[in-house]
Write a protein that binds this DNA or RNA. Structure first.
Lengths: 181, 181
DNA sequence: ACCTGAACACCGTTCAAGT
DNA sequence: ACCTGAACACCGTTCAAGT
């Protein structure tokens, strides 16, 4: 049986998926977890700390950047996760007024593994040379930006030249492989 | 002297810049505009409609994608605008529960001009061939994603391989020029 | 047509208390 | 240590009414 803390995180995640951060009311979170409307304050400083814990847990669960996962698979998993859980994606990369050490650590770990996948691809000649962290930032920016634009409906409004995020990531990898030749 | 509607939009934009969408309370908007706390309802259906109008006005004011502006200048202006006004950037590309025709039209106009700049660059041999709208989407994704990751603090946390959004945009353009050779 | 003031339901947060 | 219930200030929205 889950701890009260985990029950609160589960309830918050469910509400987040359903209606975004503003749908995550501490009262409804408590109700779903079977506790009073302010029991959350015994586990989290305030609403933002609760949301930061949800974001950190989400990042830690991410397998897209696990060591040993190839670059293309990692990117495909990242894009699929973001499109499947847009509210979590927006939350993780949203603006935080309070710096959460747990959240920063989780983000750093995922990024380090992804840089490793990029370095391997560089050694295989699939990507141009250069500082791996910087090439990784370029590739991540395309995947992240394509997803965010797609979620906002700013991508391929018309039929011509339509491209989903995965297509754009593939285009980038093709162009980079060409530039590395 | 500005109309009440414009005064409301100005007040809302100021509050948005200061503390994000949740800082935009209709009560404070009214106070700043010199009207009662629910006068906004005579001009906008609800709070989200007011924010949608702010976003649409912001997009229409954008000059980064005006016809005739070169690709590099357009991207530099886009990045500079986003970094200078992060809350507006987040709002424009946020999730809308109510589809605003005004907002969609403004977004489509800016995008069309940007596709034109990309097509011109392709003809000059600076970008690879291909459907202009699709190449434009790739370039926009980098600029957008790099800014969003930078604002979230997920870019270049360490010192090594550090790159700001403008650097990443330049990297992509360089690689694409190489691939087009 | 545009605005005001009272009212309602809801929410985040705090506090005094309970086990 | 963890939880509850009342209370406070605040907010979005509605409504009856004023000019």
């Amino acid at each position: 049986m889950p701890s009260t803390r985990d029950a609160l995180l589960d309830a918050a995640t469910g509400l987040l998926d359903k209606g975004g951060p503003e749908a995550v009311t501490l009262r409804e979170v408590g109700r779903r977890a079977g506790v009073s409307h302010n029991a959350p304050y015994k586990h989290f400083a305030d609403k933002e700390a609760l949301l930061a814990a949800v974001a950190a847990r989400e990042l830690k669960r991410q397998r897209w950047a696990a060591p040993g996962v190839g670059l293309r698979n990692a990117l495909t998993a990242y894009v699929a996760w973001a499109l499947a859980h847009p509210a979590r994606f927006k939350l993780v990369f949203g603006t935080w007024h309070t710096g959460s050490a747990e959240l920063a650590a989780a983000a750093g770990g995922a990024n380090a593994a992804f840089v490793g996948a990029v370095a391997t691809a560089q050694q295989g000649g699939e990507l141009p040379a250069g500082e791996p962290a910087r090439v990784a930032a370029l590739v991540r920016s395309v995947a992240h930006g394509a997803v965010d634009l797609a979620l906002a409906g700013h991508l391929a409004a018309g039929g011509k030249g339509g491209a989903d995020p995965q297509d754009l990531v593939d285009d980038l990898l093709d162009h980079l492989a060409e530039a590395a030749r």
